[in-house]
């Protein structure tokens, strides 16, 4: 049964190939905008691997939480028959909230405690779009790398957390890496894509998935809170 259905999986690509042969070469886009979404668990506890009490796990448990984000890339260089190289900015946000425990061990209070993280990144982005532009394969592999910064804060029912007068906010430096692939949605309806390009200036639309490695562990810092994660991210991107 699986073998019999397998050729159907290639049907969209065949359609795309036929359509591609009738399409004039598109203009080079200069800007890519991404909306990103994926699970994210700050690696705070990595610094406490030998400890009996792992703070993030103790307070927030292991429930999956997500990071939403956006990225804007300026595609500076277009390399013929290969792809583009650009620089961009990334911003992401995640927040974990839980009820704080009473200190005396008498149970869970009604007070919320939260951990918020803003992730900022400045990235170099290499997109290999030769496949999507010059073959029938509607895929654009890419890699990203650049310095990143995590701005974190901890709050309780009264606002920002403080312990001994020390504010529960901080920043953590690190690096951001990602490798992924973008699926060119234009092949699903090339006429609509052309119209979208002509009327809105959006040359291409993609769905993408990537392996995200936010190595935000305190680059250049001592005693910083580790807030990175290795996770996956999905999103939608447009090139203009």
């Amino acid at each position: 049964m699986k073998i019999a259905l397998a050729p159907l999986a290639f049907a969209p690509l065949l359609v795309a190939t036929v359509a591609h042969a009738q399409t004039p070469p598109p203009k080079d886009p200069f800007l890519a905008v991404e909306i990103r979404f994926g699970p994210y668990r700050p690696s705070v506890d990595d610094a406490f691997s030998g400890a009996s009490e792992k703070p993030y796990d103790k307070v927030f448990g292991d429930a999956t939480r997500f990071m939403i984000g956006a990225e804007v890339d300026w595609q500076l260089v277009h390399i013929p028959h290969f792809g583009s190289l650009g620089i961009g900015g990334l911003v992401g946000y995640t927040k974990a909230t839980a009820k704080a425990n009473f200190t005396d061990g008498s149970g869970v209070s009604g007070e919320d405690t939260a951990f918020s993280l803003w992730m900022l990144g400045a990235l170099a982005v290499l997109r290999v779009d030769v496949l999507a532009r010059e073959t029938w394969i509607p895929l654009v592999p890419y890699v990203k790398a650049g310095p990143a910064l995590g701005l974190w804060s901890s709050t309780n029912g009264l606002g920002a957390s403080r312990v001994g007068g020390r504010l529960g906010e901080g920043r953590t430096g690190g690096m951001f890496y990602a490798v992924g692939g973008m699926f060119l949605l234009d092949i699903l309806d090339r006429q609509a894509a052309k119209t979208f390009s002509a009327e809105q200036g959006v040359h291409h639309t993609y769905l993408f998935g990537e392996l995200t490695m936010a190595e935000i562990r305190g680059l250049g810092q001592t005693g910083a809170m580790q807030v990175g994660d290795r996770t996956w991210t999905l999103g939608i991107a447009v090139e203009m």
């Binding site: 705070v44 703070p55 993030y56 307070v59 200190t103 901890s154 309780n156 957390s161 529960g168």
Partner: peptide, 12 residues
Amino acid sequence: KQTDDFYTVYRR
């Protein structure tokens, strides 16, 4: 009553 927020647990 006194509670332990995340930062308190982290520092402790």
